[in-house]
Design a protein around this nucleic acid. Structure first.
Length: 671
DNA sequence: TGGGGTGATATTTTT
DNA sequence: TATCACCCCA
């Protein structure tokens, strides 16, 4: 670790009050946070358990953990809490279940689970449109929760999404409570309510957390901000690292205004700016600064670098989107060939996923290995969701959503009519589906055959639940998989055996993950604790983190945050694409500009933009104008390369000498 | 149970 | 216009 610069030192050593570290891209803000944790423990003898550090995703939390452990030579790190916001919320809730009104084994619903519940509720009033509306309604409800507001009840029935959502909001909340389930937003919202309603509980937590450190605070939503405020009270010492120019999660409810609120809520807030960038060449930084100067700011800052000025920023003008893909890949290959770099040194960034298809095709044709991140996550895979539903049901017999998901996977010949009767009986009893199906009164509704089919399943489930309460969680899971003959079922249902194998492998990964959690986790190791932690871990990170081989990275501008590459291409620099057409009000353009800014500041050595003159859009080929952002860059540092000038690959091929053979050999080596 | 036909949708995404 | 998800029919 290199020496800290004076500003970084100030931020690390200031511990008498709350601090905002206003940190530009690549200025080492995360390392300031980690150094501060080490400093508190080593120099001030702060007990590790009085320190809590919070991030917004698992990857960041994990990285912070290892960096702190490195600094402290793994001594003393044990009591430090480093987790995501949601994991912290979960932890708070698990210690106050009675006050919150949940029992210990509550389920955690992801967006898809919530959506299924919303759809179910919508079906009452909108039988035909329920599935189509569910996603938007779920988003609206989530949005309210993130903003910490309750919906206004609409005066009369209306057809707008907002009003529909407002009408089912309460039902949705009641149903979650009845299922003993929470959605992701509840993991933040419920702790806030808990602290508001139970001052004694809040006092316990305030006594515990003396130093709270939050990274990437520009991503916080109103609810998370409120939680921080409550936890800190008057005496807590808050350290926050933020860059309002990298706030690109408006969709997630993040608000750049949070930084202003921070100043209001913590009147003695000290502000330290980190403006030295250790990542990019001078020219790239100059471009980034010039661009972002067009946005309004709460705090002004200007990044500088003592690295060399570097190559000009290039702009490739191309005829069409196909031509653009070809040109970008050619440039990339040529550059790699010329400089002897690795494929992993390159990233191609774009605004939306639709742009990736053509690129993939060209890369495939040229046999260039690439790594597309942001594809479907591990936990979105059906087999994983199935098994997770089983596990949730084992912990929480009230989880009707899980019951419904599980009942016919594998096939158990339980018909929709049977389920309808069952749910009628359940609501009469005021019990969950699982409890109702164990009730003897059920025979009144069902034929002997129907009842028997159901009973076999529910008996088995009841036994497994009993076993789960006594035995080692891992053993229970393995036994369950065997009982289900899940592997056979996969093989039967997938027409491609390779896919079946892959799915089974995913499930074994899940079990392995569970096992790792069981050995790591201190304290209780009950199945429900394990399942709750598991619900918060995207195993996606495992895949995206170790990009193990030598691949060109393809990703959206949004998903690049926290990463850097020697050579960056940003494609589709056109009006209506970046900035995107539906985001053109003043605030929207600022958000899009930040997106471009984030992309630019990922680059260390070279930066290349590309744009096409024509592009297919909704089936029609339309002419495209260069992005306004290009005209906001310092023109002297741009090198425009239009379609008429050299095409490097043809250049190389045209020479017909050893270059070609070398190129071929190089390409072949990578296959 | 799987495939084909139909209709809706076309931004970004973390837990 | 292209894809995807879902539903229905064979």
């Amino acid at each position: 670790m290199p020496e800290l610069n004076p500003h970084q030192k100030t931020a690390v050593h200031y511990i008498n009050g709350s601090l905002l570290i206003l940190a530009g891209a690549g200025s080492g803000k995360t390392s300031v946070i980690t150094h501060k944790i080490a400093w508190l423990i080593r120099e001030f003898g702060v007990a590790p358990h009085h320190i809590t550090a919070v991030t917004f995703n698992n990857k960041a939390a994990r990285e912070m953990k290892t960096r702190v452990a490195d600094l402290l030579n793994s001594q003393n790190t044990k009591g430090v809490t480093i987790s995501t916001f949601h994991a912290l919320g979960l932890n708070i809730l698990q210690n106050s279940l009675k006050e919150v009104g949940y029992s210990s084994s509550f389920s955690i619903y992801d967006a898809e689970d919530s959506q299924a519940l919303v759809a179910k509720l919508l079906r009452v009033d909108h039988p035909d449109a329920a599935n189509n509306l569910a996603q938007e309604v779920q988003k609206q409800i989530s949005h309210w929760k993130k903003r910490l507001v309750k919906p206004e009840q609409p005066p009369n029935k209306s057809e707008s999404i907002r009003d529909i959502a407002a009408l089912i909001y309460n039902k949705y909340e009641q149903r979650l409570l009845a299922y003993n389930a929470m959605d992701f937003d509840d993991l933040i919202l419920k702790p806030v309510r808990l602290f508001q309603d139970f001052p004694n509980t809040l006092a316990i937590w305030r006594k515990r957390i003396h130093y709270l450190l939050v990274d990437d605070y520009q991503d916080a939503n109103a609810c998370q901000h409120e939680l921080v405020k409550l936890l800190m009270g008057k005496r807590g010492v808050l350290t926050v690292a933020a860059d309002d120019d990298q706030s690109i999660c408006a969709e997630q409810g993040a608000q750049p205004e949070n930084l202003r609120h921070l100043q209001q809520d913590f009147p003695n807030l000290k502000v330290v700016k980190l403006e030295q960038n250790y990542r990019s060449t001078g020219r790239i930084l100059k471009a980034a600064n010039a661009l972002i100067a067009n946005n309004s700011h709460v705090f002004e800052k200007t990044l500088w670098s003592d690295r060399s000025y570097g190559d000009p920023v290039r702009v490739l003008k191309t005829r069409s989107e196909e031509h653009e893909a070809e040109r970008v890949v050619s440039e990339l290959v040529y550059h790699k060939f010329k400089h002897g770099t690795d494929f992993r040194d390159y990233a191609i960034l774009f605004r939306n996923h639709s742009q990736v298809r053509l690129l993939e095709r060209v890369l495939c044709e040229r046999r260039i290995p690439y790594f597309l991140s942001g594809a479907a996550s591990f936990f979105d895979k059906t087999e994983i969701k199935d098994i997770m539903a089983y596990l949730r049901l084992l912990c929480n017999p009230n989880d009707d959503n899980a019951f419904l998901r599980v009942i016919n996977t594998p096939r158990r010949e339980v018909s929709p009519e049977t389920l309808e009767q069952l749910s009628r009986h359940a609501s009469e009893l005021g019990a969950s589906l699982l409890r109702a199906s164990l009730d003897t009164g059920l025979e009144r509704y069902l034929s002997a055959k129907q009842a028997a089919g159901l009973r076999v399943f529910t008996q088995w489930l009841a036994n497994t639940i009993e076993q789960a309460n006594k035995e080692d969680p891992i053993k229970v899971v393995c036994d369950m998989l065997a009982d289900l003959h899940y592997e056979d079922w996969l093989k039967d249902t997938c027409n491609d055996q390779k896919i079946a194998e892959q799915k089974m492998k995913n499930i074994l990964d899940l079990v392995a993950w569970l096992q790792r959690l069981a050995t790591q986790q201190n304290g209780e190791k009950t199945l429900s604790r394990l399942v709750a932690s598991l619900s918060l871990i995207g195993l996606l990170e495992k895949n995206s983190e170790d990009n193990p081989g030598d691949y060109v990275s393809l990703m959206t501008l949004h998903s690049t945050k926290g990463q850097e590459f020697p050579h960056v291409f940003i494609i589709g620099m056109e009006e209506d694409l970046l900035p995107y057409q539906t985001n053109l009000d003043e605030k929207g353009v600022e958000e899009e500009r930040r997106l471009a800014y984030v992309g630019i500041t990922r680059a260390r050595e070279t930066l290349t933009f590309s744009l096409a003159e024509r592009r297919k859009r909704g089936g029609e080929i339309v002419a495209c104008k260069p992005s306004r952002f290009l005209s906001e860059l310092p023109q002297d540092d741009l090198e425009w390369i239009d379609q008429e000038s050299r095409d490097h690959l043809n250049d190389v091929l045209g020479r017909g000498d050893g270059y070609l053979a070398n190129l071929r050999a190089m390409l072949d080596n990578n296959n």
